[in-house]
Simulated assay, not measured.
Amino acid sequence: MGPMSNERRHRATVKDVATEAGVSRGTVSRVLNGQPYVSSEARAAIEAAIAKVGFVPNRAARSLVMQRTQAIGLIVHEPHSLFIEDPNIGAILLGANAALSEADYQLSFLIADSARDIERLARYLTGGLIDGVIVVSAREGDPITKAIAQLDLPATFVGHPHDIGDAAYVAIDNRGAAREITRRLAATGRQRIGMIAAALDRDSGADRLAGFVDARGNDFDPRLVQRVPLYSYADGQAGMRALLETCPDIDGVFAASDAVAAGAMDVLQAAGKSIPQDVGVVGFDDSSWALRCDPPLSTMRQSANELGRAAAESVLAQLRGEKPSTESRILECTVVWRESA
């Protein structure tokens, strides 16, 4: 047996750290658990001792003592097909993971596609395996929302479904942003402006349609709104085909997401329409889809990464016993104008 096996047999303990630092084990425990009332000198000595003896905290034991799992669930209520296509979901996930990692929490990614998934997740949430949740794409009347409320789990929603009561949320002003970019499109001289309105069963989609209606005012024509289920490329194609059938001389399109806009642009170009000369097109998100389009897509930029980070920080604040701040709930959007309109 060489020295490596001896090291494996002897795992450094709190007692080893205390002996090396010249402090009590209680003082070491307070530092490990993030508790106050430890002098800066003692804290520095303990940190140096941890590095020297190679101490690794037993997080499982610590979780039992603190009654915490150090894990936060991120629940996304979207079809599996959208995960590959929607860059916003990945950006929200990465933003949340970065904030949780800094706080020494683990992210648990939970997908709710079918009714069976929702039942399974509701059971999972009752098992005490996570300390709190971030919920993306919740619909009004969502069973996941009801399960979270019943369990009184610390939770923050990305978006603002109208039935979450006073639960914490982070969001963008979808209505105001949609109104702004529709007006910008109209300012280019377009007269027959339509919308491919997606995901109307959640607040983001419904609010973007409301913003479009606001912007069109007396020029609003309900026949120029085509409703589609998802923020997807395929739905953009389907919506654009329907709009062309209804209004062959359409000269402007607001698509509810960049992926929807990309599908719409392909259908327009296949129909012999030049963009932006014949039809101006704008999207929403400023995701990677926007730069894949030819010409590049004019769109409304939202920071999905910052939404994820803000949601994670909100859950962590709740776990610390803090009431989430209402001041940082709404994040800003900005117009990014390119050659498609």
Results as ranks from 00 to 15, higher is better:
Pro161Gln: 09
Arg123Pro: 02
Ile134Asp: 12
Gln191Lys: 15
Ala138Gln: 03
Ala149Tyr: 00
Gln150Leu: 09
Ile193Thr: 06
Ala198Ile: 03
Asp113Phe: 05
Ile196Ala: 08
Leu129Ala: 15
Leu129Ile: 04
Ala199Gly: 14
Glu119Tyr: 02
Gly141Met: 01
Gly194Ala: 04
Thr182Pro: 09
Pro161Ala: 12
Ala122Val: 07
Gly127Ser: 15
Gly132Leu: 07
Ile193Glu: 09
Ile181Asp: 10
Leu129Gln: 15
Glu140Lys: 01
Asp163Val: 01
Ile196Asp: 11
Asp117Glu: 01
Ala177Gly: 15
Asn174Gln: 12
Thr156Gly: 12
Arg192Lys: 13
Arg192Ile: 01
Gly141Ala: 02
Asp203Thr: 05
Arg179Pro: 08
Ser204Pro: 02
Asp131Trp: 02
Gln150Trp: 00
Ser114Tyr: 02
Met195Ala: 13
Arg116Gln: 15
Asp203His: 11
Arg183Asp: 10
Leu151Cys: 04
Leu185Pro: 14
Phe157Thr: 11
Ile193Cys: 09
Pro154Gln: 04
Ala197Met: 03
Ile164Lys: 08
Gly165Lys: 03
Asp173Val: 08
Asp201Cys: 00
Gly128Ala: 06
Arg183Lys: 15
Leu185Cys: 11
Ala147Val: 00
Phe157Asn: 11
Ala178Cys: 08
Gly128Asn: 07
Arg175Tyr: 00
Leu153Phe: 12
Arg179Gln: 14
Ile130Asp: 04
Tyr169Cys: 13
Val170Ser: 10
Ile196Pro: 13
Ala186Gly: 07
Arg175Ser: 08
Gly176Gln: 03
Leu153Glu: 10
Gly127Glu: 13
Ile181Trp: 09
Leu129Tyr: 13
Pro154Trp: 02
Val136Thr: 09
Thr182Ala: 05
Ala178His: 11
Leu121Ser: 05
His162Ser: 15
Arg175Asn: 05
Ala197Thr: 03
Ala138Gly: 10
Ile130Tyr: 03
Ser204Trp: 00
Gly159Trp: 00
Ala147His: 05
Gly176Asn: 05
Ala198Thr: 09
Asp117Ala: 03
Gly128Tyr: 08
Arg184Met: 10
Arg179Lys: 13
Asp152Ala: 14
Gly165Tyr: 00
Leu129Cys: 10
Asp166Trp: 02
Arg184Ile: 00
Ala171Gly: 10
Gly132Pro: 10
Ala178Gly: 12
Ala198Gly: 14
Gln191Ser: 15
Asp201Glu: 12
Gln150Arg: 14
His160Lys: 14
Ile164Met: 07
His160Glu: 09
Ala155Asn: 05
Asp163Met: 04
Lys146Ala: 13
Ala147Pro: 12
Glu140Phe: 00
Tyr169His: 15
Arg190Ala: 07
Gly132Lys: 07
Gly165Cys: 02
Gly132Ile: 06
Arg116Trp: 00
Ala171Pro: 06
Ser114Asp: 12
Leu200Cys: 06
Arg179Val: 00
Tyr169Thr: 09
Ala187Ile: 02
Thr145Ile: 03
Thr188Phe: 08
Ser204Thr: 14
Thr182His: 06
Asp117Asn: 13
Ile118Thr: 12
Val136Lys: 01
Ile134His: 10
